[in-house]
Amino acid sequence: MHMEQDANIFIYNGLKDAGIRFIVSVPDTLISPVLNAIDKDPNFIHIIATREEEGVGIAIGAYFGGYKVAILMQNTGLGNSLNAIASQGISYKIPLLMLMTLRGHLEEYNPADVAFGQATPQILSALRIPCYIPNTNEELYRTIIGAAKLAETSQEPVVILLQKHLFRKIER
């Protein structure tokens, strides 16, 4: 698999090795290489949703259908999907692995993304959704494998927030 040697390849390998074969996404620039790769890979079903809330619904349907599922989005999409995550994901005990690029933190350039970005960890904590923020790409890979297992065990949503620095190309 040819891909940028940044978080993208670690996300691809993590999802694959965790046995996840159904991915719903609302695209984001940082994760576009892994989404493009998944979109072309016959090992995955990849559905691009119009909105994150819709994506949560699609992922729940695929979980009913027997797949292990993950949702990839920007953390702004968490705001668009909170009620679906709470009223369906948590309440019906659905193991949703959610990977979100983290906007509104270090190096942010868009003032519109700061408020929700800064509030994101506390919003997740208010809903008692486990949230992990890996600092290196090796840690990211292990976190994806571990979070998929945790979601399966707890039968509840688990979030991994993807910091911007993980997407810097590794110098060789």
């Binding site: 159904f22 719903v24 079903i45 559905i47 949703a49 809330e53 819709e54 994506g55 949560v56 619904g57 699609i58 992922a59 729940i60 349907g61 695929a62 979980y63 009913f64 259908g65 027997g66 797949y67 009620n83 679906a84 009223s87 369906q88 309440s91």
Partner: peptide, 18 residues
Amino acid sequence: RGGMGLASSIGLGLALTV
């Protein structure tokens, strides 16, 4: 028992996987 608007999305995810 909630999730207003999501029935068709759950149906889509299910239809694609079964």
